[in-house]
Computed example of a mutant assay.
Amino acid sequence: MMQQIYPQVQHDFCYELNKDMQIAAAHFVPTDAAGKCRQLHGHTYFVNVTVAGDDLDEAGFLVNFQVLKKLLHDKFDHTVLNDHKDVFNDQDPNFFPTTEVVARTMWETIEMHLETLPSKPTCLQVYVRETPTSYCIYRPKKGKK
């Protein structure tokens, strides 16, 4: 895995954890405006998830790293993103599997899980690097969870 320094999110939580993972996946962007990206192609996505909170669970974790990996890596690795009709579609550009939408979708997936935990941690950002020169960060707007 490529060592990264990620953009920081300023916050007042006691704990912050970051989980890195690589996800090999293919996708296409279903619009002529996407140019070459309209064709099926693949990436090794480098993903970083930032979670923060004030309270630890019964195991002393803010959130278990394995759970974060299961939620994203186990779902998306070695798949065609467009085939995940539960989160992506070919009709609405807000749900095309672009890097921006992938980052937001990963944030939503993580945040939905975190909301079920008694300690109530939160996902501050999801960083998705699609190529060595291109990445996207999704952070929810304050007050818009």
Rank of each mutant, 00 (worst) to 15 (best):
M1V: 12
M2N: 06
V9I: 07
Q10T: 14
D12P: 05
D12W: 00
E16D: 03
N18D: 11
N18P: 03
Q22M: 12
Q22R: 07
I23N: 01
A26Q: 12
A33E: 15
K36E: 10
K36H: 08
H41Y: 06
N48K: 14
G53S: 10
D54S: 13
L62I: 11
L62E: 09
F65D: 13
V67I: 15
L68A: 05
K69P: 07
K70N: 09
K70Y: 10
K70H: 13
K70I: 00
L72R: 09
F76L: 14
T79S: 14
V80N: 11
H84L: 12
D86H: 06
N89W: 02
D92A: 10
P93H: 13
P93Q: 13
F95Y: 12
F96V: 01
P97I: 02
P97L: 03
P97D: 00
T99K: 03
T99E: 00
E100C: 04
E100I: 03
T109H: 00
T109I: 00
I110R: 02
L114A: 04
E115F: 15
T116P: 00
K120G: 00
P121L: 10
Q125I: 07
Q125Y: 05
V126G: 03
V126S: 03
Y127W: 14
E130P: 02
T131C: 06
Y138D: 01
Y138T: 00
R139S: 15
R139H: 12
K145P: 11
K145V: 13
